[in-house]
């Protein structure tokens, strides 16, 4: 309707643009999209170019499964870091996922509108608190607490999971909120009208309808947890051993990279990029799993 209102006053240029519009605009968009994507491709290529050669030289299997990380002696094995990253990420996902999703459900389903307009921005605000501040508070408050009450050095899988869980909370919450809000209101009204309670509606209708968005929220949150560096360095302890309990210190792939990158040269530096390659692959695997799970579920649902 509004489009037709503007018609009479168009200049020849505007009219010409109008005729060519779709082609013109879509080609501009294509150029921009390609530049963005090529940026991402270039950085991916950069990581692989720097990291792959040394990985092949050491042997992929040995690089991934050996526990000897003595760069000065030419021993590159990152098995403890892989286990460390997995442990910390799993812990963070449990804490941050539960908290984040809980917050999102409360915000969208069980919360008066005025409270939403305060809570949602304040949770998003927390995404802006620097990771170094989170890490710092972890070191100053959380680590001594764990050391005194639970034992161990305090710097541990537990401490890193908690810090990372809290850090990924804003990401998980705000994206989940958007996904939950995008569910058409009719679904909810329909379910309520059928006699479902509010919680039943949430669980069986809204959470299911917004699944792809929620999975995206979890993936992005998980990405933040796996990829987080500064906070983890501060609270993880960074030992070279595979952690044997949640109170044991741990070194993650990211902290391995960030700890040593500033000083590394030659093969050591390349091995750190190779650690980045492994990280990339791990995230790829996690994402693939998440995608397949969500796709299979939705297929089963549509089949039933």
């Amino acid at each position: 309707m509004r489009a037709s209102q503007g018609m009479p006053k168009r200049s020849p240029l505007g009219a010409w643009l109008d005729r060519k519009q779709d082609l013109f605009i879509s080609s501009i968009l294509l150029v921009v999209a390609l530049s963005a994507i090529s940026g991402l491709v270039v950085i991916t290529a950069f990581i692989f170019k720097e990291g792959l050669p040394i990985m092949l030289q050491v042997g992929v299997g040995k690089f991934v499964s050996s526990s000897d990380w003595y760069p000065a002696e030419g021993h590159f094995g990152i098995f403890p870091m892989i286990m460390g990253s997995l442990a910390v990420t799993a812990g963070a996902l449990v804490i941050g996922g539960v908290l984040g999703l809980g917050c999102a459900v409360v915000l969208t389903q069980f919360c008066p509108r005025w409270a939403v307009s305060i809570l949602k921005p304040s949770i998003e605000l927390l995404a802006g608190i620097p990771s170094v501040v989170y890490g710092f508070i972890g070191v100053v408050i959380l680590v001594p607490m764990i050391r005194v009450h639970l034992g161990g050095p305090g710097l541990s899988v537990l401490a890193s999971s908690i810090v990372l869980g809290i850090m990924m909370l804003p990401t998980v919450t705000s994206i989940s909120v958007d996904a939950l809000q995008a569910v058409p209101k009719a679904y909810r009204d329909g379910s309520i009208a059928l006699g479902a309670t509010h919680w039943q509606t949430t669980r069986m209708v809204i959470l299911k309808a917004s699944r792809s968005g929620l999975v995206a929220a979890m993936i992005l949150g998980m990405g933040r947890a796996v990829g987080e560096t500064m906070a983890v360095i501060m609270v993880a302890g960074n030992t070279l051993d595979v952690p044997d309990s949640i109170l044991a210190p741990v070194r993650t792939l990211t902290s391995n990279i960030a700890l040593e990158m500033g000083y590394a040269a030659g093969d050591h530096r390349k091995a750190l990029f190779a650690t980045g390659v492994v990280l990339f692959v791990i995230i790829m695997i996690l994402n693939t799993i998440a995608l397949t799970v969500s796709r299979r579920r939705s297929r089963r649902k549509s089949g039933a």
Binding site: V139, V140, N238
Partner: peptide, 16 residues
């Protein structure tokens, strides 16, 4: 030792 905690700065060592 592999069991040693690794910190990235003087301040961090001091804090621990």
């Amino acid at each position: 030792s592999r069991k040693a905690l690794t910190q990235e700065s003087n301040g961090a060592v001091k804090e621990l």
